[in-house]
């Protein structure tokens, strides 16, 4: 696993997320530089994540503000944001991670970077950070859908 490999794999995830949001929510996302691996905000965040089992295990995460999650899930389900419960948002963001990971799993199935999915999960709160050991191979992508910001991260653990 090299820096180049992880960047390419991160691009696969980004492309997959682009496809998921375009197909299921009608959102087009653009990619901007991600230079803030530990950026924090005062607004509530929901983070969906999954451990990937491969030759080298990885953890992926997708984080966004709660309002962004509500907007995306509303467009996907056809339910108004105010009618969605908090549990729907946590479940929805975890499922986004699941769908995204499923697509990339198939894409990498016959390569040295193939992996198995595990159960996705969600975390939520305000002003939290995900801190890993130093020198882990990790990268991120910052995505924008209109005014909405989404951050994807992958770290080989």
């Amino acid at each position: 696993m090299t820096d180049m490999d992880i960047e390419k794999i991160a691009d696969f995830f980004t492309e997959s997320l682009r496809q998921v949001l375009s197909t299921m929510a009608g959102f087009e996302i653009s990619h901007v530089a991600c230079d803030q691996l530990n950026a924090s905000t005062d607004n509530p965040i929901i983070m969906g994540a999954m451990v990937l089992h491969g030759k080298k295990d990885a953890i992926i995460s997708l984080s966004m503000e709660k309002d962004t999650a509500a907007m995306i899930i509303a467009y996907m389900t056809g339910i108004l944001p105010r009618e969605l419960k908090e549990q729907d948002l946590f479940d929805g963001v975890a499922e986004l991670v699941n769908i995204m990971a499923g697509e990339v799993k198939a894409r990498l199935s016959n390569t040295p970077h193939h992996f198995l999915l595990t159960s996705p999960f969600s975390l939520g709160g305000t002003n939290f950070k995900m801190v890993q050991k130093k020198n882990l191979l990790e990268t991120c992508r910052h995505l924008k859908a209109g005014e909405m910001d989404i951050t994807f991260r992958i770290a080989y653990i």
Binding site: T77, G78, D88, A94
Partner: peptide, 11 residues
């Protein structure tokens, strides 16, 4: 197991 997917299917 995803309530979001079940909601989409319900629609």
């Amino acid at each position: 197991d995803s309530s979001m997917v079940r909601k989409i299917i319900k629609g």
